[in-house]
Measured scan of single mutants.
Amino acid sequence: KFNKELSVAGREIVTLPNLNDPQKKAFIFSLWDDPSQSANLLAEAKKLNDAQAPK
């Protein structure tokens, strides 16, 4: 279960257009550290992506 959630969340995070590479890497490392938090980490990444969207 975690492997699928981890890969789905990881793929989504790397495609978020408004995150820079260090931010993406930080989220990916957090996913590896605790795969059970993949849904929460993906939600946080999406929030940050939205907040950094060009206005």
Rank of each mutant, 00 (worst) to 15 (best):
K4H: 12
P22H: 15
S30N: 08
A53L: 06
E12N: 04
A43D: 07
L48T: 04
A26K: 11
K4C: 14
A26P: 04
F29V: 10
L42E: 04
E5M: 09
L16C: 02
S36H: 06
R11K: 12
V8P: 12
W32M: 12
V14T: 09
K24C: 04
A53I: 06
I28S: 02
P35H: 01
V14G: 06
S30Y: 08
R11F: 11
G10P: 00
S36Q: 07
P17K: 09
D33Y: 13
S7E: 12
D33F: 13
K25S: 11
K24T: 02
K55D: 13
Q23F: 02
V8N: 11
N40S: 11
I13N: 01
K24F: 03
D21N: 09
I28Y: 02
T15C: 14
V8S: 14
K25H: 10
V8G: 08
K4S: 11
P35Y: 04
F29C: 12
K24W: 04
L31I: 09
S36R: 07
N49W: 03
D21Q: 09
L42G: 01
A26H: 12
A43S: 07
L19W: 01
D33C: 13
K1L: 12
N3G: 12
N20M: 07
E12Y: 14
P22R: 15
E44G: 05
F2Q: 10
Q52E: 03
A26Q: 11
N49Y: 00
L42Y: 02
L31E: 03
G10A: 15
D34H: 06
P54T: 08
K55E: 12
V8Q: 12
E44D: 06
F29A: 11
A26R: 08
F27R: 00
D50A: 11
E12C: 11
F2T: 10
K25D: 10
D21L: 12
D50I: 10
N3H: 13
S38Q: 07
N40M: 10
S38M: 14
L48R: 04
K4D: 11
D50S: 08
F29Y: 12
A45G: 01
P22M: 15
P35G: 02
S36T: 10
K24N: 02
S7W: 15
I28M: 05
A9C: 06
A26C: 10
I28Q: 02
K55F: 12
S7V: 14
K55M: 13
W32Q: 09
E12P: 03
N3M: 10
G10Y: 15
D50Y: 06
A43T: 09
G10W: 15
Q23A: 02
A39F: 07
